[in-house]
Each structure stands twice: as C-alpha cells, then as structure tokens.
Write a protein that binds this DNA or RNA. Structure first.
Length: 478
RNA sequence: CGGGGCGUAGCGCAGCCUGGUUAGCGCGCCUGCCUUGGGAGCAGGAAGUCGGCGGUUCAAAUCCGCCCGCCCCGACCA
C-alpha cells in the first residue's frame, strides 16, 4: 500500500489542491524571482499544443505571425490616456544599460499595442495597405501584487493579435470572429464550456472601446476569464496618428482590434478537469495520449513482454503520443499512480494474462474504467475511447456549470446565492456602474459578461430597482 | 500594502518552550539481492552553511535583535 503523500483533496482546500496537482504533474515550479514561474516540460507541452492548434486557426482566418520587441520607449505607453492609466502601475522599467543610465527609460511590454501601432503608422498609408492581420507569440510582464501559478504570474506567455482596418464594421467583425475562434478552441480542444459575452465598461481593457470575453466556470464554481477580444476603435490610431487615404481620397483614422489568450489557459484546464488523483488532460491537448504499462514479472518472459509492449504501442497508431513505461525499478501500481498524476488520458496495461488472450486492458483516466480490448481492434478502440473522454470531459464541465447557474431576481436571493458555494448568477442589471461597484464591494461578485446570446427580457436591477432588458452573468472570479 | 503561516538533506517534517558531545525521522536518491495485475521487501550507502547578519553565553538549530525569502488569505489585474 501507498505511503506516498497524496494530493490535498479538492473538497478540503481547492487552492492547495490546485498547487498540488501542478507539482505532482510537474507542470511548473517557482522561480528564484518572486511571482515568476518555470514552466516545466509537462507544462510547456500543454502550451505547445495550445499554440499549435490556435496558430492553425489564426492562419485559417487570414492572420500572419510577426515579432515585435520586448522593450518599449516609456513615452509610447503614455500616448493613450486610458491605456497609460491602466498599465503604468504594473510596468517594469529598464533604466540602465551598458553600464549607463538610459536617456529614456524602456518599459518591458505589458502588452504590445503601443509598439505595434508606432510601426503601423509607418506601414499604412493607403486603403490598399489594409487590413493588417498580425499575431505574435510572446512573453509579457506585469508587476502583479499577487500571483498564482499559471493564473497570474509576473511574466507570462501569450499570443496577441493586432489588426488594422479601414472601417469600424470590419474591426467589429474581426473582434467577434476572433472571440468565436477562442470559443471554439476552448470548447473543442480544452473541453471547457465558455460563455462568450461583452465586458462592462468597468471591466474592459484599458484603451478599448469594447471588450469581449469568454468566461468559464471552474470546479470550485468561480469564474475565470479565459480569453479576450477587443475592439479598440480609433483610440490607438489617434494616439499614434495612423491614417490612411481612402478610395474617395480622404484621410481617415484606422480602426483597430487586439485579442489574446495566455498560459492562463493551462490554469483553466487544470481547474476545470482535474481530480483528487491529479491532472486530467483532454486527449486533444495531451502530448502523451496513452502509455503502455507492461506487467513484468517471472510469470512471463520479461524480454518478450517488453517487446510485445512496444508492438502494442506501434499498434495504437499514435506515433510519439504513446509511450512505453519500461522502467524496471518501479512496480506497475506505482506507474499507474504516476501516469494518473500526469493526466495521461488512457493507460494500456499488458500483462502475462493479456498476452495469452491476445488483448490489452485500456484504463480511462477520466472514469477509471477498465476495458479489455483485443489487440486486433486496438487502434480503433483506443481512438473511440479518446474521443469519448474528450466529449465526456466537456459534457461533465457543462453539466457542472448548468447545475450552478441560477436566475436571481431580488437582492436577498442574490446575496444568499453568492455566498459559498457560489456559481453563476443570471441577474438583471441596470447598466449603472455605481450599482456594479456597490455589488462588487458588498458581495465580491463582479459582472463577468453580458452574454452575446442573452435573450431580451424585461426586468429590474435587484439592487436599485431600475429597469433592465437583459440578464448578465455575475460571479466571483479569479 | 495589510493579515496569517513557514524557512533544519532533493521533498515532507521532528527537535526549539526547558541551550550541552558525532542534529534526527519518513519518502526520495545510490549499490546489491529479491520482486512486479493498484504507490513491494531486505541489506548497505551518499547527502545538512539548521534562511542571513549581529548579540547573550564556557557553549546557540534552540534565547534576544535586525534583515531576507517563500507560501496562503485580502485590496489591483489576464
């Protein structure tokens, strides 16, 4: 029996459980610098899968990748009023280089709008130069007061798309298109159901006209913003004087969007699917989709068993995504726990008895179900199980969200519901920021978004009683 | 920045209150034997600036002071 220390149960301390899962799966480690983290190979593999898929989706929608520099002249940040107000406090500033104090301090990018729009000014002169559809994969740095692995770290990896358009309508269409790309990615690959919606002015990006978001519910029923897409209007074009000559000969300001997702998605993935045994990775995102565990022992010729295990791996048709655990110094039971902690979707057991019966035993990470499977039909059976897991994880997460989404119509009901164990509160809101602030101060709940598919419905704000024509999503958030 | 907790071997901890030879324990690690269908067993072994600096003392992991770091909880944010 095990004498290993187990993970803190989710039910006991969700936050500690989250940290335990990360450690047990070797996803990340703390760096010597406060607030920064080292993304270990297992964690980086998840990021690579995210990158690979999203990059395809970006390119399918006409975008190209480029790279803009890490260092930005401090003055650039100050060109857009709201933007500077939003980011100045959390910027790290380089003041020295080459042993001398710099003439102008350089800010380490907290986001790249300013450096990019300073370049767009050079690149755009005619309507024929538009649209510009650029994305970049990069690191950014924000001096956060409080950090949490993956969810909020001082430095993080992300992608930021920055597009320039001739018309407002085109920019809005782009903003919504990318939100939809994010929604599809989150649901089809991360298996995380999300609510696409509009942020309130209070919650929107500093410098944006409108911010759209996809909001997800974690297993502790708190909300997590998983991606954002901004319609920047002409704010940055104005700040950096970026104009183009239209067909009619007139010079006009360019319309802009930006959109991004970050390594925070890995945090979402962990908090959405994992369990008391450790990480659970949706098959489509798993670099290792299956692992063959040979049951070595005296009952069968170990050499032969190992050779068969390797054959089984080949029979899965998974290529690099299947591993054979041929370690001889640890028991099969140890290996089971080891791979479960790492979230590998399917374990393939192969022992002497299986060998006799020309079969393997598939074990699902999500349910623990053991499925004896003939060798002959392995590839197909395994593919089916992987699909089943992918769909099952999404469905389970969706069910949890539905179960914990409540319509509330009065202040008392609102206050009662928002106390632990929380959930999404679908309530009317008058649209007044003062009311929004008051609700946050008194209940800790924020408006996560105004869902895009919200049906028009007459009602009244549960706090001030003023009329409202649609429900919004309130929740406690990460 | 406030509140709480913690710093002793790679990890988790005991020892500290009541100072006293070579600072312990579990896991992990190394070697060998033996095992292997849910975290095996035996034997041997390596591994420590006790977070740092200063003070008290014949003597400090232990008492006192200052400092540093990290984690968790809150206010800001993706």
């Amino acid at each position: 029996m095990s004498r290993e220390s187990k993970l803190t149960p989710r039910s006991e301390d969700y936050n500690q459980w989250y940290l335990d899962v990360i450690q047990a799966a070797e996803l990340a480690d703390y760096s010597p610098v406060k607030g920064c983290m080292v993304i270990r190979p297992n964690g980086y593999a998840l990021w690579e899968m995210i990158q690979r898929q999203l990059d395809e989706m970006f390119k399918d929608t006409g975008h190209v990748n480029a790279y803009f520099p890490l260092l930005i002249p401090e003055s650039f940040l100050q060109k857009e009023a709201e933007h500077v107000e939003g980011f100045a406090p959390e910027c790290a500033v380089v003041t020295h280089g080459g042993g001398h104090e710099l003439e102008e301090p350089l800010v380490i990018r907290p986001t790249s709008e300013t450096i990019i729009w300073s370049m767009y000014r050079k690149w755009i002169s005619s309507h024929r130069d538009l649209p510009i559809l650029i994305n970049q994969w990069a690191n950014v740095l924000r001096w956060e007061m409080r950090t949490r692995l993956f969810l909020r770290t001082t430095e993080f990896l992300w992608q930021e798309g920055h597009t320039a358009h001739a018309t407002e309508a085109e920019a809005e269409a782009e903003t919504l298109q990318m939100l939809e790309v994010y929604r599809r990615f989150a649901e089809d690959y991360l298996a995380i159901p999300v609510i696409p919606g509009l942020k309130t002015d209070r919650e929107k990006f500093a410098g944006a006209v409108r911010t759209y978001t996809i909001e997800a519910m974690m297993q502790d029923r708190r909300a997590l913003q998983a991606g954002t897409s901004h319609n920047l209007g002409q704010n940055f074009a104005r700040a950096f004087d970026v104009t183009f000559q239209a067909e009619d000969g007139e010079r006009r300001l360019v319309w802009a969007t930006s959109w991004g997702v970050s390594t925070r998605l890995i945090g979402a993935l962990i908090m959405c699917h994992s369990d008391d045994k450790g990480l659970v990775v949706p098959p489509r995102l798993a670099a290792t989709k299956a692992v063959v565990v040979p049951i070595l022992g005296k009952k069968a010729d170990p050499e032969r068993l190992l050779a068969e295990a390797r054959k089984v791996a080949a029979e899965t048709g998974l290529g690099r995504a299947v591993k054979v655990d041929d370690r001889e110094n640890v028991s099969p039971g140890w290996k089971y726990h080891d791979w479960e902690q790492r979230g590998v979707p399917v374990r393939i057991e192969l022992g002497p008895r299986d060998l006799e019966q020309d079969q393997v035993v598939l074990v699902r990470r999500d349910s623990g179900e053991k499925i004896p499977t003939p060798r002959a039909g392995l590839e197909r059976a395994l593919a089916d199980q992987l699909e089943g897991i992918q769909a099952g994880l999404f469905e389970r997460a969706r069910a949890l969200r539905e179960e914990h989404s409540y319509k509330v119509d009065d202040e008392e009901g609102f206050r009662a519901r928002i106390e632990a164990p929380d959930g999404f509160l679908l309530a009317h809101w008058c649209g007044d920021e003062a009311c929004e602030i008051r609700i946050q101060e008194e209940t800790k709940a924020t408006i996560r978004c105004i869902p895009l598919d919200a049906e028009p419905e007459q009602g009244s704000c549960p706090f001030c009683g003023k009329p409202s024509d649609r429900r919004v999503v309130f929740a406690k958030a990460y």
